[in-house]
């Protein structure tokens, strides 16, 4: 029997009994050298990203850029409107009264940083995504109630169908399913 299948699959999906089993399995899979792995859980699990060995999120960088753009825009907008476009003497203060500029500039910083956070997060997660191969596994519906899943993609260089399948089973998976495209 050959290990290569006629129709290449997306990967393998293993189901575990609970949080601790999943964490343990994720660490083992990571240490075994797999990179294209992901986990699906009904509740957020603290430390799972580290267990999966996921790279650091790029969202903070986008947030920082958004904040800087927002703050600068806020300051420049006020400077231009208050001191250049329509100079208005407010109780004898300087036209560029920077203390008064700070609160709106701060709000703009927060606004654009939030935009960066929300839209950056959506884009980096390639959302909206109406279809994903793991949906082909019937049991995967339970990922929203009581299922704890770990997937390894077939495109991972270390992926070797029989070996990987056995490895997942040896980690205590309840069931290992093939994921079709």
């Amino acid at each position: 029997m050959t290990l290569k299948l006629e129709t290449p699959i997306y990967g393998l999906l293993a189901e575990f009994d609970g949080e601790h089993e999943l964490m343990h399995a994720a660490e083992q899979v990571r240490d075994a050298g797999y990179r294209k792995i992901d986990a699906y859980t009904p509740v957020p699990v603290h430390g799972l990203s580290e267990a999966l060995g996921l790279p650091r999120s790029r969202v903070p960088l986008i947030v920082l850029c958004g904040g800087l753009i927002g703050g600068t825009t806020g300051l420049l907008l006020q400077y231009w409107t208050m001191a250049k476009a329509y100079p208005l003497n407010v109780a004898g203060r300087p036209l560029a009264a920077w203390p008064s500029f700070i609160p709106p500039a701060f709000e703009m910083t927060i606004l654009f940083a939030s935009f960066g956070a929300v839209f950056g997060w959506i884009l980096l997660n390639s959302l909206p995504q109406p279809y994903h191969p793991v949906f082909n596994v019937k049991r995967f519906e339970r990922a929203t109630t009581d299922g704890w899943f770990l997937s390894i993609e077939a495109s991972d260089p270390k992926f070797e169908y029989g070996e990987t399948r056995q490895f997942l089973a040896s980690l205590g998976a309840k069931e290992v399913s093939d994921v079709e495209h």
Partner: peptide, 12 residues
């Protein structure tokens, strides 16, 4: 600190 400064700056 800034709030105190801004309020007094605005009140003048």
């Amino acid at each position: 600190s800034f709030s105190q400064f801004l309020i007094i700056y605005s009140g003048n």
